[in-house]
Design a protein around this nucleic acid. Structure first.
Ligand SMILES: [Mn+2]
Ligand SMILES: [Mn+2]
Ligand SMILES: [Mn+2]
Ligand SMILES: [Mn+2]
Lengths: 226, 226
DNA sequence: TTACAAAGTTAAGCACACCTAAAATAATTA
DNA sequence: TAATTATTTTAGGTGTGCTTAACTTTGTAA
């Protein structure tokens, strides 16, 4: 069992994984974890020694199968906790991430499976991110586009939101925007690239930055595993 | 906020607190936490420096008001988690303690309050130990005696069990003995000091050691706060 | 009351995970 | 290609919490 710190590195590497499949740089990991480059280089060596990543000096790093299994498991624990905290214990949208960030490292497999069962094997976390199942399989991702790239006049379902800012989560909560809600794009302003949506007959103007953090789809999705 | 390690010391000091009110020795703490005497001496100095305990070399230590507040809070978190894991997530009697041992250190006040609310402000944990409320107040303890000290022929309610051994918890689960169950003392053998009880018309022989780990009362108790 | 044993503390050192500053390597620009 | 700049690694160091071994204090028994 890797330490809390090592689990965080593995998770960061998995999530930082790029579309182009190129290895990640130690610098990218360092900035994601908000620690020094030096610490990351050192840890890279250790993780490579224990076979959790492949790492060549100056050439970046990538997860091995073994490292990926652990990373995916940490992510499973994180996302299940997030959903559990929101749905069962009624913490709010902005609070669940930070709490899950700690819980993900200290929950036994058994406890996590119980939570999974309690929630009836959910496919997505409170931000719309996929939850790996017990075998590490991720559900199929719904095809989404950014709210900033939608067409005026059309209706969409909110499928995912960027979870990296508590402030954004609080704002979305305040205006009453939730996952799986239906919205209509009323207008888009060329002036500042903001998007005006209709949410339950309320009209809301969302800035470019906010609109780029909300992912929508024209069709709704199936939430539970078959 | 003290570190996980410091929280464990404070909790151990609180729980180890003796009836005679004499200060605890560093050796007692060390053995309870299964670490060396040396580590405990060193930590005693640090805890004293931050005003969490009073400590005089060679004279033992005791909690200050400030240290006690933290200790009681850790215990609150531990016991609420234990009950939550058992009642809501259906972990079993023998599993909850070890899991709570980790969760107690990383849960926010808010999360713990939500759990407290979810459980409807319970007074006792799954082993019959009192749960401190948000203000650190402990509920009144029911008066109990050891099962080994009961009278033959009388009926009792199981009020508390010693939670220090997973094996014992598993054994009690297997024979179907639960908290708040009514039992009748059928016989006590002088030969080995074992106690024979009737539990739901089943007759069970409990060794001296087991009988000394079970605490009973002649009257049942009120479980929820007022 | 002294000698010895037991209990408790200090000393020295280790693993972990981080830091800053210096050095090495790679990438870019002239 | 050489010089310059940017990226990445190594060197040296820190704080926490632990260890074993040596030493000090306290309690007990001769
Ligand atoms: Mn999250
Ligand atoms: Mn999430
Ligand atoms: Mn316990
Ligand atoms: Mn308990």
């Amino acid at each position: 069992m890797p330490s809390i710190s090592k689990e965080n590195y593995l998770k960061a590497i998995f999530i930082g994984n790029r579309a182009d499949k190129k290895p990640l740089t130690t610098t990218e990991i360092a900035s994601r974890l908000e620690i020094s480059n030096a610490a990351t280089s050192e840890m890279a060596r250790k993780l490579a020694d224990s076979g959790l990543i492949k790492y060549e000096k100056y050439k970046g790093l990538r997860l091995t199968k073994k490292g990926e299994r652990i990373a995916v498991n940490v992510i499973r624990r994180h996302r299940l906790w997030e959903l559990f905290l929101l749905k069962v214990l009624k913490l709010n949208w902005a609070e669940v991430h930070d709490e899950a960030e700690k819980l993900e490292h200290i929950s036994s497999e058994k406890l996590i499976d119980k939570i999974d069962e309690f929630l009836n094997y959910p496919k997505f976390d409170p931000h719309g991110e996929p939850i790996p199942d017990k075998n590490g399989e991720l559900p199929n991702l719904p095809k989404t586009i950014k709210l900033s790239e939608t067409e005026i006049g059309k209706e969409y379902f909110v499928i995912k939101v960027d979870d990296s800012s508590n402030e954004l989560m609080n704002y979305l909560t305040k205006i009453g925007l939730k996952l799986y809600e239906k919205i209509k794009v009323a207008d888009k302003l060329k002036f500042d690239n903001s998007v005006i949506i209709m949410l339950k007959s309320k009209q809301i103007n969302l800035s470019k930055k906010v609109a780029e953090s909300i992912f929508v789809s024209e069709s709704s999705i199936n939430l539970s595993r078959n």
